[in-house]
């Protein structure tokens, strides 16, 4: 099972590395544009990029290259749902993709993390093409998370919870497929949960019971529980 997993990654990387470079370049351009010149069309382009890359993962990665694995079509459907979340965002203007607050700088760190994937693999003694690249599902999820954290004025919660779900799926693969790179995703997505939900609490404070403090305690407790059970598992 582990061999199949790494073989599919190797064949995927060998066949699509020019495409992957193009994706990374596009992501870099979009991120820089969003940071320095946030216009309406840039936001739309960023959301479109999210849709396209989700569909890429679903169809090219899971249905074409990883079809040797069991239940790869389930994960393809999941990434189609991720694409749907972004399409919904695009159509209804659900999130604003603009900067605010302190968490922006944390987001920048998270944004760079996907680029660390190949280096971690190489430092573990793997050679190209059998290494993790930035256009693999978990790295893409990490990039999306970074975008959400950086441009967090009003975020796409659908996409975020999908990413959180993905990080739980990914964590279980660490031991299963020997891919410790994915720990990055969990390490960043669980604190993001606390940040995002306490922020959304603040935006509607005062109108609800129980008090914001209680809810914040609950959220933090859930985050600790999640982290704890992930470690235990």
């Amino acid at each position: 099972m582990k061999e199949i997993f790494w073989n599919t990654i190797a064949s995927y990387n060998a066949a699509t590395w020019p495409w992957q470079l193009a994706f990374i370049a596009a992501a870099a351009v979009l991120t820089l544009l969003l940071w320095f010149r946030p216009r309406r069309w840039v936001r739309i382009a960023a959301k479109l990029y999210m849709v396209i890359i989700s569909l890429w993962i679903a169809f090219v990665y899971y249905l074409k290259f990883a079809s040797a694995r069991e239940h790869s079509e389930v994960l393809a459907i999941f990434w189609c749902m991720m694409a749907l979340a972004w399409i919904y965002d695009l159509v209804t203007n659900f999130s604003s993709f603009s900067r605010s607050g302190k968490a922006s700088y944390w987001g920048l760190i998270v944004l760079v993390l996907p680029l660390a994937y190949p280096f971690i693999s190489i430092s573990r003694g793997f050679v190209f093409p059998g290494i993790t690249m930035p256009v693999l599902p978990s790295a893409v999820a990490l990039y999306m998370l970074g975008m959400l954290m950086t441009f967090n004025e009003k975020i796409n919660f659908f996409a975020y919870i999908f990413i959180l779900h993905w990080s739980i799926i990914a964590i279980s693969k660490i031991t299963l497929f020997d891919i410790p790179e994915d720990i990055l995703l969990a390490v960043s997505s669980i604190p993001a949960m606390v940040i995002f939900f306490t922020r959304s609490l603040k935006s509607m404070s005062g109108k609800f019971k129980p008090s914001d403090k209680t809810v914040t305690v609950l959220i933090s407790a859930v985050a600790v529980l999640l982290a704890g059970s992930l470690l235990a598992g």
Binding site: F197, L201, M204, K207, F208, K209, D212, T214, V215, V222
Partner: peptide
């Protein structure tokens, strides 16, 4: 007109 349940609170409680 008393305040209702906080949706975020309900979200986390239901998931738990």
């Amino acid at each position: 007109s008393k305040p209702g349940m906080n949706p975020v609170f309900v979200l986390f409680m239901v998931s738990l």
